[in-house]
Design a protein around this nucleic acid. Structure first.
Ligand code: ZN
Ligand code: ZN
Ligand code: ZN
Ligand code: ZN
Lengths: 180, 180
DNA sequence: ATATATAATGTTACATTATAACATTACATT
DNA sequence: AATGTAATGTTATAATGTAACATTATATAT
């Protein structure tokens, strides 16, 4: 199976890009979460968990699936509601624990600027990312661009600060909403 | 009066840098919130408010003063407690409104990664900033570095995303805590 | 297979962060 | 002084996140 990458995009847009156009680093993530892609993505997560000797339980799979299928990043309580809609009784700790696991495995990211979670565009590799959050439609793109982190590292080094994690979240207008 | 700049630094460190070493852009903010500096900072805020025809009320002044005097960025409820200690009865909306005002005026920044507020190092000018948050001691430095934002802008442009605000928060270990 | 330990989930209660709505007070302008 | 507006006070509640402990599922060892 080829690696699958994922990105949250705005409703209605198609903007399909063939998978093999994605270079898996240094550029924007590539594809829309169609149903087939979600299946592939979950399968890939499953394989990664096997490799890492982690348990990809029903609960975790369901949470990841809901996040993948969403057009926008989801809050924890939005996820809870979706889970209830899907017939699973769930309380906050349940979803937060699942989210913790998914983040540890690098399958989802959390956006601090709006307390939401979205599927990672490239779970195959460890990476830092830049998120472009549309304030209009909420759609969020994950960019992988080493340049920004190199710049952060360089500046931090000057003040002897040891970087562990950098969160870069950019709010603005996506191409689609600019046009409209 | 000379412009005053401010930075939140770790307890106990002195690391004084003369004000005229600070170039007010492109580099780390410069000085420690000593009492004299806080006074100057508040006076400067006062002047900016007059220039902008904004009201720098007692409440707003008190909140800004507490933030300035703190070694670390403060949460809204920590501020509330400090205000109560200082004899003012206050409820959450009071402090949140004051914080909103101070942010609008560019006197404080909010850190999304830990829901705290800190005095802006350079309120004289509009700017984007990078925050280095020490996970050990909580001390937070504000860096002004155009390079990172240029990189963000450039990458965003490639996907036709219109940047409005970029939040860059870096978690790691400060020089002081690395040594210890 | 059964016992045992560990990991995951369920459940309840609560902590923390933030805001809505409306009353009151202070200030500015006439 | 009368009036309108901005700021603050006050109450209640929304939204986000976690602690603690019970239960269930899974893995490992005997
Ligand atoms: Zn990612
Ligand atoms: Zn948009
Ligand atoms: Zn600043
Ligand atoms: Zn430190």
């Amino acid at each position: 199976m080829v690696d699958v990458c994922m990105v949250s995009v705005a409703k209605g847009r198609q903007q399909k890009i063939e998978h093999d156009e994605c270079r898996h680093s240094g550029d924007i993530s590539c594809v829309q979460p169609s149903y087939k892609q979600v299946e592939d993505f979950l399968l890939q997560a499953d394989n990664l968990c096997i490799k890492r000797k982690q348990r990809f339980t029903d609960l975790r799979k369901q949470v990841l699936s809901l996040i993948c299928r969403s057009e926008q990043p989801l809050g924890a309580y939005a996820l809870l509601d979706l889970m209830k809609d899907a017939g699973r009784s769930a309380a906050p700790p349940t979803v937060y624990r699942a989210l913790d696991f998914l983040q540890e495995q690098g399958f989802v990211h959390r956006l601090a600027s709006n307390n939401t979670y979205l599927a990672c565009a490239h779970p195959q590799q460890q990476h830092e990312a830049v998120f472009l959050v549309c304030k209009q439609c909420g759609a969020t793109q994950e960019l992988h661009t080493d340049g920004i982190y190199k710049a952060v590292e360089s500046r931090a080094k000057k003040v002897s600060f040891k970087v562990e994690h950098a969160s870069v979240e950019v709010v603005g207008l996506c191409a689609h909403c600019r046009a409209a």
